[in-house]
């Protein structure tokens, strides 16, 4: 008989892996916190162009905070204490994981996506900031709750080792984390205000690659790409912008809908009507991001090369940036 541990853990699907793991681990410990709440308190929303990094030979834009930051900020603002460990040796990493499972403690893991065999082939890129929960072991297979999947799944010891020790940017190095202590009562009110203020600050930052200014920056680049890089590369870059915005995990519209869901929930919790109104506005802005994606897809689908069409989608982005500038100023005053 092989030792068997199955922790009574409830899998809830989420849009984004990091929020999902936090939300699921909190629920497991008896605190009902929704995915949008984790995202909002952890100041997940962002826009940032990272000029020095290229993924799949195209520039990188992120619509969310750096991997791990949502988690860190959420824990700090709610007073939850987290234990995090990284390992240089896969054996130690496995031993610590088994130890926790034996103690009935489900843990969060950071993993690479490329060797996650249950993902469709087309989605397996060298992206190392995916998150999952391991909640048991049965017949030498680890039981996995991957928040973006509809159902639970499993990985062999070797498969799990591979994804925990993926290499490249943001290499997980076996990164494992779990909550170790909780406040007596979870007080979300203050945490919400802190989370919102922090997001407004980032989105309105006077830095040309970040927030509202970053959106204008990308709009400007899109206008230049066809001439400077040629149509083929311009379309490849534009496709990557849309993929980053709409990829699995964003919940649609570059995380704007998750954020709107957060504002609605927060507004009700704080009894703040303004937040509920702003949630509606954010939804409308999310719809404009979707319109941008649709329009951009027409360019790279037909491989059309009119400079006009690039200018048109760039105009859409400039418009969104103007709206978000007004939006985050109002949001800052609302809390």
């Amino acid at each position: 008989m092989k030792p068997e541990t199955i922790i009574n853990f409830t899998h809830h699907q989420s849009a984004h892996c990091e929020n999902g793991v936090v939300s699921n681990l909190m629920k497991h410990n008896g605190f009902s916190v929704s995915e949008p709440m984790v995202f909002g308190i952890g100041s997940g929303l962002l826009f940032c162009y990272i000029p020095l990094l290229k993924v799949n030979h195209a520039p990188v834009i992120t619509y969310r905070a750096l991997p791990g930051h949502i988690f860190k900020k959420f824990a700090k603002r709610t007073g939850v204490k987290m234990k995090r460990e990284k390992f240089s040796n896969p054996k130690d990493a496995k031993a610590r994981l088994d130890e926790n499972l034996a103690k009935n403690n489900p843990v969060g893991l950071q993993v690479g996506v490329y060797n996650l065999l249950y993902f469709p082939d087309e989605y397996r890129f060298h992206f190392n900031a995916h998150n999952m929960v391991v909640y048991g072991k049965q017949d030498d297979r680890y039981l996995i709750s991957d928040p973006v999947m509809e159902d639970v799944t499993s990985l062999s010891e070797k498969e799990l080792e591979k994804v925990r020790f993926a290499k490249g940017a943001f290499a997980p190095k076996g990164h494992m984390y779990y909550p170790i202590s909780f406040p007596e009562k979870l007080e979300l009110e203050k945490a919400i205000v802190k989370g919102i203020k922090d997001t407004c600050k980032a989105m309105l930052a006077p830095v040309s690659y970040v927030g509202v200014k970053g959106i204008h920056k990308i709009a400007g680049l899109i206008r230049k790409w066809p001439k400077k890089k040629g149509v083929k590369t311009a379309n490849h870059y534009l496709g990557q912008v849309v993929r980053m915005q709409e990829e699995i995990g964003t919940g649609g519209g570059g995380f704007r809908y998750i954020y709107a869901a957060f504002l609605q929930e927060a507004g009700k919790l704080l009894g703040n009507e303004k937040l509920i109104e702003l949630s509606k506005e954010m939804t409308e802005i999310g719809d404009l991001w979707r319109d941008f994606a649709l329009e951009a897809s027409r360019i790279y689908k037909n491989r059309s090369a009119q400079t006009d069409s690039y200018n048109k989608v760039a105009d859409q982005l400039d418009h969104i940036a103007d709206l978000e500038k007004v939006f985050f100023k109002k949001l800052k005053k609302a809390v």
Binding site: Q13, S14, A15, P36, N56, E122, Y123, V148, E150, N235, H236, G239, Q240, V242, R243, E246, E247, G251, G252, Y257, I258, A260, A261, Q264, E265, S279, K280, T283, A293, L294, A296, S297, Y300, K301
Partner: peptide
Amino acid sequence: LCYAVDENGEYTTENSTGWEPKTVALKNA
């Protein structure tokens, strides 16, 4: 999983099988 509003304007979630603009982007990649 996607986030969307129901007929009363309340946020809820809905599963999606895919969206063409991103399928095309992925196919091109």
